Computed example of a mutant assay.
Amino acid sequence: MTIALQDMAWHRSVGQLIEALDRPNFWAQLVRLLDQYVSFDSWVALQFSSGQRPQVFAESPAEDGSPDQLFQDYLKGLYLLDPFYVASRERSQSGLFRLAEVAPEHLELTEYYQRYFRLNVVADEIQFNCQIDQDRTLCLSLGSTQRFSAEQIALLSMIQPWVIALLRQRLPFELEAAASDADQLDTPLPMSNWRKQLEASAQHSRGAQLTARELDVGRLMLSGCSSKEIARKLAISAETVRVHKKHMYSKLGIKSQSELFSIFLQAQNA
Rank of each mutant, 00 (worst) to 15 (best):
E59F: 05
N25M: 08
Q47E: 14
G77C: 01
F71L: 13
G51R: 11
L78D: 08
V56D: 11
L81I: 11
Q47S: 11
R53D: 00
S50Y: 08
L75V: 11
Q69P: 11
R32L: 07
W43N: 04
L34T: 01
Y37T: 06
A45C: 13
K76Q: 13
R89D: 01
A28L: 15
A87K: 07
Q36G: 08
D35Q: 14
Y37C: 04
S49V: 11
L70A: 15
L81F: 09
Q47A: 07
Q36L: 13
S60L: 03
P61Y: 04
L21I: 14
Q72C: 08
D35N: 10
S92Y: 05
F84M: 08
G65L: 05
L30C: 10
Y79H: 13
D22R: 09
D68I: 14
Q55D: 01
A58I: 09
R91T: 04
P61T: 11
E19S: 13
L80Y: 04
Y37F: 12
D82M: 01
V44L: 13
Y37G: 02
L21C: 02
L30P: 05
W27V: 13
P83V: 00
R53W: 00
L34M: 06
P24M: 05
L33T: 07
Y74A: 04
Q29W: 06
F48H: 14
E19F: 07
K76R: 15
R53G: 00
S39P: 01
V56K: 09
W43T: 05
E19P: 03
Q72P: 05
R91Q: 12
S49G: 00
D35A: 14
E19N: 07
N25R: 12
V56Y: 11
D35Y: 10
F40M: 12
Q52V: 09
S50E: 10
S66T: 15
A28G: 10
A28H: 15
F48N: 14
F71K: 14
L21F: 02
K76H: 11
S39G: 08
R32N: 14
E19M: 09
W43L: 02
P61W: 02
D35H: 15
D82C: 00
R91S: 06
S92V: 01
D41W: 08
Y85Q: 02
D68W: 10
S60K: 03
I18H: 05
L75G: 06
S88E: 09
G65W: 03
A58G: 04
S39I: 00
Q69T: 12
A28W: 10
A45I: 07
V38Q: 06
G51I: 01
L70C: 12
A62Q: 13
P67R: 09
R91W: 02
S49T: 10
L78G: 02
D68V: 13
S39E: 11
A87T: 05
R23K: 15
L81S: 05
G51V: 00
Q29V: 02
R32Y: 04
Y79T: 10
F84I: 07
L75H: 06
A45L: 09
R53N: 09
S50T: 06
L30A: 10
V44P: 08
I18L: 12
S42D: 10
A28M: 13
D73L: 05
F48K: 00
S60R: 04
W43Y: 15
V86S: 04
D68K: 12
F26I: 01
L30V: 09
